[in-house]
């Protein structure tokens, strides 16, 4: 077995895990919301309705594909790809577990790639995700779509700033952009970044909900006002692509929250845990944040658009600036400064 084969295996495993989780999330979304509303939810396809995502996928493939008259055909086709692609690209650097073993003198890590600039890469590619909304909305040649697209992209651009600043505080405390090093820097008693950077964690969490267009910030697809937002005119598998992108982005954000603030694959109170325990710990922590996504969606009402912008620019952004300033002060003059 050569190194390339191992890389291929890891790649397939990571992508399979994340995309599979994204598919299961569509099921979990309906099941959890049903439980919260005292309903049964999907329970016909397979045991407990577990095969529902598969049935949905087959149904989407067989649906008729409608491209509205006057739509810009190339950009119309490109937009769903541009939504799904960035979220999937971001999987490449997420550390699912630590060192699995050594093979021919090379350490095999629990992530597809391990670049020095890991977190910057994630921020860069997820920032591209805004194009799906803005171009999909524009190319559809529909007022609802255009309004939805403009809203979604304005929101994503506004909250991306605070998100990056929150991440920057974590990067400053760790002193590295590499995700494996960020995880390794969180070992020990109360070593998780959520204890040293609580404000950054709250900011990151709120902004990640806005970035993925989830409740309570889901103006992109605000049903009562905009029919469906920027994907109003999409049908069949292209419509499904938007949702694959959205749910994959959710999984990636949950993974990032775990990695940046909750010690990633570190197992609490067990410093030298084997790699599969790390994988289980990572999965457990990520699952909690995925559940939180659903929990929040079915608990909180939606913001109004001006409230959303107010929160983003006048509350979160100054808080993020103050946070990074204080972090800088503590690093320069606080205990442990040189």
């Amino acid at each position: 077995m050569s190194m390339i084969l191992i890389w291929l295996l890891i790649t397939v495993a990571c992508y399979g895990a994340v995309i599979g989780t994204a598919a299961l999330m569509t099921f979990a979304e309906r099941k959890v919301s049903a439980a919260m509303q005292y309903r049964y939810g999907p329970n016909r396809v397979g045991p407990f309705g577990l095969l529902q995502p598969l049935a949905d996928g087959v149904k989407f493939i067989f649906k008729e594909e409608v491209i509205p008259a006057g739509a810009n055909p190339w950009i119309f086709k490109l937009a769903p790809i541009l939504t799904a692609l960035p979220a999937m690209l971001a999987i490449a650097v997420i550390p699912f577990t630590g060192v699995i073993g050594t093979f021919e003198g090379t350490e095999v890590l629990g992530s597809i790639a391990n670049p020095e600039i890991g977190i910057l890469y994630v921020l860069a590619v997820t920032g591209v995700g805004v194009y799906g909304a803005i171009l999909g909305g524009w190319a559809s040649n529909s007022k609802y779509s255009l309004l939805g697209g403009l809203r979604a992209s304005a929101q994503m651009v506004s909250y991306e700033l605070s998100l990056i600043l929150a991440v920057l505080a974590v990067v400053a405390t760790t002193g590295s952009l590499n995700l494996h090093e960020i995880v390794a820097g969180q070992s020990g008693w109360f070593g998780w970044n959520v204890f040293s950077q609580p404000l950054a964690f709250v900011l990151f969490l709120v902004c990640s909900y806005a970035e993925t267009n989830r409740h309570p910030f889901d103006f992109a697809e605000c049903e009562p006002e905009l029919v469906g937002g920027f994907h109003t005119e999409y049908s069949s598998m292209k419509f499904a692509m938007f949702f694959i992108g959205e749910y994959t982005a959710m999984v990636v954000m949950a993974c990032l929250t775990t990695t940046l603030f909750f010690g990633g694959y570190l197992v609490p109170f067990w410093a030298d845990a084997p790699w599969w325990m790390g994988l289980i710990a990572f999965g457990a922590k990520t699952s909690f944040f995925l559940l939180l996504f659903i929990w929040v969606r079915w608990t909180l009402p939606r913001f109004r658009y001006d409230q959303l912008m107010h929160l983003g620019w006048k509350v979160l952004f100054p808080l993020a600036l103050i946070n990074i300033f204080v972090t800088g002060l503590v690093i320069s003059f606080g205990p442990g400064a040189n």
């Binding site: 600039i117 910057l120 890469y121 921020l123 860069a124 590619v125 920032g127 591209v128 651009v157 991306e160």
Partner: peptide, 11 residues
């Protein structure tokens, strides 16, 4: 490269 994508493409 990543700064280029983050600033120019994303912003």
């Amino acid at each position: 490269a990543m700064a280029q994508i983050l600033i120019y493409v994303g912003g």
